[in-house]
């Protein structure tokens, strides 16, 4: 995973609350066998509507999603995080995230920045007034900056540390490779292996 210290980009105002994971990515995409390429499934029902905010050309390059409260409720599918990332999002800003979605995001390396709802409103207005507005999410300072707006955001300390170090769960465990080696060296030799016996 790449280190996440500060991210700048344009943002999409998603004026909806209670965006559940079925909306983020419908169940039919769960049959796939790849870990990547879920961008076509992202908000696929809503994207049928040509007026849906993601379909507006000036948001094509956006990397930050600004959404209403209770983002990511519903089924625990990890694909919701994958779809947002595959589409190009590095950050979701909202005033409240569903627990499992926030956990999955932390694991996958998608930053969920929790702000006051007034900040969400202010961002929506600012982005709608100028879609090219550069939004900066500073993980070190725990701060969102956009034009004149400067606001703090909440993020779990452990997740923040991991993102800043660029470590996913596996990366963290691999830091303890010596412990794993030592454990393996002490394992009884009679423990079975799956190597075929003839």
């Amino acid at each position: 995973m790449e280190k996440f210290i500060v991210h700048s980009g344009t943002a999409v105002p998603l004026r909806r609350s209670n965006v559940d994971t079925d909306q983020i990515i419908p169940a039919e995409y769960l049959k796939r066998i790849t870990r990547h390429g879920f961008e076509d499934g992202l908000f696929s029902a809503w994207r049928q509507d040509p007026d849906f905010v993601l379909n507006r050309p000036h948001h094509a390059e956006a990397t930050i999603l600004v959404a209403g409260p209770d983002f990511g409720t519903g089924s625990s599918r990890e694909h919701a995080v994958w779809a947002l990332q595959d589409y190009g999002f590095a950050v979701v800003i909202s005033s409240r995230f569903a627990d499992i979605f926030r956990g999955n995001s932390g694991k996958g390396g998608l930053l969920t920045a929790e702000v006051e709802h007034a900040v969400v409103e202010a961002l929506w207005e600012a982005i709608e007034a100028d879609p090219t507005l550069e939004v900066t999410v500073d993980l070190e300072q725990r701060e969102v900056r956009a034009g004149a707006l400067v606001a703090g955001f909440d993020v779990d300390d452990y997740v923040r540390w991991r993102l800043m170090e660029g470590l996913d769960d596996i990366g963290i465990t691999l830091q303890y490779a010596d412990d794993i080696d030592a454990f393996e060296a002490a394992r009884p030799s009679w423990k079975p292996t799956t190597v075929a016996v003839i």
């Binding site: 990890e78 999955n104 694991k107 996958g108 769960d169 596996i170 963290i172 465990t173 691999l174 794993i180 393996e184």
Partner: peptide
């Protein structure tokens, strides 16, 4: 699934 990946890569789980 992400735990499956974790075990494949590290043979451990937190």
């Amino acid at each position: 699934t992400s735990e499956v990946e974790h075990v494949l890569a590290t043979q451990t789980l937190p």
